[in-house]
Design a protein around this nucleic acid. Structure first.
Length: 878
RNA sequence: GGGCGGUUAGCUCAGCGGUAGAGCAUCGGUUUUACAAGCCGAGGGUCGCAGGUUCGAACCCUGCACCGCCCACCA
């Protein structure tokens, strides 16, 4: 491609994204190398849910690490970023079972085998949707290593982990009260339950005391569970109920005698101080039941319907219908004392939002404490670092209070539990492959019907994807990974478990750092949700504003760990930025001959030296920001530098140099653009690649071009000071013009009173540039400004300016402005004088601070004097 | 009940001990040959409240208020 190729007048992202997206993949630029002398940088992408559709949360969570990866790659790292998908068992079940239901079918009717066939078809068809959408984000993923949590190798890893934990006694089977979702028809772990405060009722029910006319009143939020009561509990020291110790009460509706037990866990102040105990349907009661040896009567089944044990009046009823009927019957029998409003937390399924039912059943559990202890240590000793650090607290809080993890699910889509039960002797065999027969009695065996929690398999993602349990080259080269980027909502679900499993099975942490990004919200700070209708769809945004604009927006809003408020306006702003880059590049390319001229130091103009000095500084600052994952800071830095320094000042100065035929300025311009593109590339990969490829001497791809380093020789304090001086003169002149309504086409004379020798020399040398940028007819240096000639006066740094307009100006505005300025300066002077008058300040503040204040005071006083003179000059002739 | 975060310009947010910042929005000017998705200029804030530490506090400490999350077995 040659420089002569015209760039379109406005940037059109679509063809560019299409072209380079394909190019990067075709060239294999993002493939990690198992054998490489370069330092490695590896990450695994949080596996995308196969039922998923790309949303803004993904866009954020993936764009930020992509910035890091692209940056590392350009710095010469051997980068691997491995993508993949997650089988998402409950979500897939919900989708498929809903479809079956539409045809009047259930999974039980079609059977396990047929169901799995449908699920695999479905997965093959739809997993591509999410991965296709991921590709549109321009992520530098190594698709040649894409994995799926149920692919052959990964499944082998899952089974091996299960077997090995079982053999070590870290996985066990138990008859336990667990959470069950009646809708999804599976049990769930504790963290899959979302507690929500609901306004409910507290029903007060009288239980007759056996062999007397007395009653005891208990309070409950779930009257239907009383059918399964097996005791009544009071606090041992509660004198109100001392008379009941050792006696029995009669359970209404069931006419069953219940023992009265005493336990310190009963809160005397809550309700009536007497509590019904239902070991099969309440977690606390379950424990009380175990402690006191109570019966466990199951009155609600796994589908949320009342069982035979609930009695003929209730059997078969839905739990909520049963509640109404229980209340009705109690009322009829005069046993309902009162009903109070009562707000309390109710558990809901995190997938379908149904009310959770405590459910007594045989399940598999991970004995988690030993794993958690190691995982806690890894964060405590800094082997793993949370960014921002305060998320470690959340992690610790959960880890210290962790409960055993229920990992069996009554579902079919997933990794089937590798446990077999002997039909004859009941022996449990846990093995990687099906045993032919019982190894104890030779009887036939049946495999456990359940599958494993999806999170059990995703916990192995960082090493399972790299080939474990085989000692592959990839595993050796890329484990442990360097960074994990994810949302705080899955710290417990996923991050903590990866740490535990990584340490257990690799003896090493799965990643060095965890970057926690915030939630994407709308401008009113609401969570984005379909029902609210406030979704900002990333694909739609890409379509409207371009991927680069979307990425830059996300980066610019990304304060580590903080939620961000996204708006389309913001994206439009960064689309404009992309366009600005585009046009600045067009300008540079238009002025560039087909080969880049060399840079001769002696030919460097002041502006050339200045932009190189700034470039060096910005490059260094960017480095710091990225190292700390301060994406917003990095984005802001680049935005400001490119737009307000490179475009607004340097290009304008360079025009003067170019007109004079300065080849070095041409070269500096091209070199600065080249560097700017490379600095921007991690944030805006597409537009930077497109433009960069137009530069003479471009390499294969900007994605593998070296990331700029701050050139130590480019820092140039003198140039920065001189530029500040020129900018002050130019801005002051423009302000005077604007305030006095001097039309831009009116060329004015500017008279500058000479100041210090060096400063005056700078101005003199740069007169051509100043004239162009300030729109001057002439720039004259004088020993003083004539008074009373209707000069419009201003102050710029050490200079006093006098402006002579072609036409007489409206001086009223100017007077207002001067007066305002003076007032402001007087206030500031007052503040500083007060400070300096304070003996404590002068004595105790560090010397440089005091000196700074003195200098500032002097400067302000000088400015005040000049402005006052200007005002007086105005007042005269006006 | 425990824990975490927030409160700074109209909006969204930086700043976290020494002159209050950005983007957008607002107002005024402007078709200057890279860009009107532009250019030039301007206005706008006792940094939630009350105490304290300090020569000095938006920033550190204490308390309070209001918002938002997370965890939790008062039925």
């Amino acid at each position: 491609m040659s420089v002569k190729d015209e760039l379109a007048k406005a940037y059109d992202p679509k063809p560019v994204e299409e072209k380079w997206g394909r190019f990067w993949l075709d060239e294999g630029l993002f493939a990690g190398e198992a054998k490489s002398p370069k330092p490695k940088f590896s990450m695994v992408l949080p596996p995308a849910n196969v039922t998923g559709i790309l949303h803004m949360g993904h866009a954020l969570c993936f764009t930020l690490p992509d910035i890091i990866t692209r940056w590392k790659r350009m710095q010469g790292h051997n980068c691997l970023w491995l993508p993949g998908t997650d089988h998402a068992s409950i979500a897939v079940h919900n989708v498929i079972e809903k479809r079956l239901a539409e045809k009047g079918l259930t999974r039980e009717k079609i059977g396990r085998e047929e169901f799995l066939r449908i699920a695999w078809d479905w997965k093959d068809k739809y997993a591509g949707v999410i991965t296709g959408q991921l590709k549109k984000l321009g992520l530098s993923l190594d698709w040649s290593r894409e994995r799926f949590t149920m692919d052959e190798g990964f499944s082998r890893a899952v089974i091996q982990v299960f077997v090995s934990l079982y053999n070590e006694g870290l996985i066990y089977r138990d008859y336990f009260l667990v959470n069950r979702c009646p809708h999804c028809r599976t049990v769930l772990s504790d963290i899959e339950i979302e507690h929500q405060d609901l306004r409910g009722k507290l029903w007060h029910i009288r239980y007759p005391v056996e062999g007397s006319d007395e009653f005891v009143t208990v309070a409950t939020t779930r009257p239907e569970t009383m059918l399964g009561d097996t005791a009544l509990a009071v606090h041992p020291d509660d004198e109100r109920y001392a008379r009941l110790h050792g006696r029995r009460v009669i359970l209404p509706l069931q006419n069953r005698p219940l023992p009265v037990i005493t336990d310190e866990r009963v809160e005397r102040d809550f309700g009536t101080g007497a509590v019904k105990v239902t070991p099969a349907h309440d977690p606390v009661d379950f424990e009380l039941g175990k402690k006191h040896g109570l019966d466990q009567v199951i009155v609600i089944d796994g589908a949320g319907r009342m069982t035979e044990a609930a009695g003929p009046d209730f059997a078969g009823l839905d739990r909520f219908a049963a509640r109404a009927k229980v209340v009705e019957k109690l009322t009829a029998q005069g046993l309902l004392v009162k009903v109070e409003d009562h707000e309390h937390a109710v558990g809901h399924c995190y997938r379908c939002r149904s009310v959770i039912e405590p459910h007594l059943s045989w399940q598999w559990f991970v004995r988690i404490k030993p794993l958690a202890d190691e995982a806690i240590r890894a964060v405590e000793d800094g082997s793993i670092e949370f960014v921002p650090a305060n998320w470690a607290k959340t992690y610790f809080e959960w880890m210290y209070n962790i409960h055993d993890w229920c990992i069996s699910r009554q579902l079919w889509w997933g990794h089937r539990i590798p446990a077999w039960y002997c039909r004859d002797c009941g022996r449990i065999i846990v093995a990687p492959a099906a045993p032919a027969k019982c190894d104890r009695c030779g009887g036939p065996v049946d495999q456990d019907e359940d599958v494993l929690d999806t999170w059990f398999s995703s916990a192995l993602w960082p090493f399972g994807t790299l080939g474990w349990p085989d000692e592959t080259e990839d595993l050796k080269a890329f484990y442990p990974t360097d960074l994990m980027s994810t949302g705080f909502d899955i710290i417990f679900f996923w991050v903590a478990r990866m740490i535990m499993m990584g340490l257990k099975f690799r003896g090493q942490v799965p990643f060095r750092q965890v970057f926690i990004n915030g939630l994407v919200r709308d401008l009113k700070r609401r969570k984005m949700s379909k029902s609210e209708g406030n979704i900002i769809d990333p694909l739609e945004m890409i379509d409207k504003y371009g991927t680069d604009a979307l990425r830059f927006t996300l980066a610019a809003l990304a304060v580590p760990g903080m939620d961000l408020a996204l708006s389309e306006e913001r994206m439009a702003g960064y689309q404009a930025f992309a366009n600005k880059i585009w046009n600045a590049s067009r300008f540079v390319l238009m002025n560039l001959k087909s080969e880049r001229p060399g840079i001769k130091d002696v030919e460097l103009t002041l502006a050339d030296r200045w932009i190189r000095s700034r470039l060096a500084a910005v490059t260094a600052e960017l480095q710091t920001s990225l190292e700390r994952y301060k994406f917003y800071e990095a984005a802001d830095l680049l935005y400001h530098f490119v737009w307000h320094e490179f475009c607004d000042w340097y290009i304008e100065f360079a025009k003067v140099g170019l007109r004079a035929g300065n080849a070095t300025t041409e070269a500096v311009l091209a070199d600065a653009l080249d560097r700017i593109l490379r600095l921007l590339h991690p944030f805006m990969p597409f537009i930077t690649e497109e433009i960069w490829q137009h530069l003479p001497g471009a390499g294969t791809s900007i994605a593998v071009a070296p990331f700029p380093v701050a050139e130590p020789g480019w820092a140039d304090e003198a140039a920065e000071k001189a530029m500040a001086l020129l900018q002050a003169v130019i801005v002051e002149t423009r302000t005077i013009r604007s305030e006095n309504r001097i039309a831009p086409k009116d060329k004015v004379r500017l008279i500058v009173k000479r100041a210090g020798r060096e400063e005056t020399a700078v101005l003199e040398a740069q007169a051509a540039s100043v004239k162009t940028l300030a729109g001057l007819e002439t720039l004259e240096l004088a020993a003083g400004l004539a008074e009373g000639e209707g000069l419009l006066k201003g102050v710029a740094g050490p200079f006093e300016l006098g402006l002579v307009p072609g036409k007489p100006a409206d001086v009223g505005q100017e007077r207002d402005r001067l007066q305002k300025d003076l007032a402001r300066i007087a206030a500031e002077i007052g503040k500083i004088e007060l400070k300096l008058a304070n003996a404590d300040f002068v004595a105790k503040a560090p010397a440089p601070v005091v000196a700074e204040n003195r200098a500032r005071l002097e400067e302000l006083q000088a400015r005040q004097a000049k402005l006052a003179r200007n005002l007086a000059g105005l007042a005269g002739p006006a």
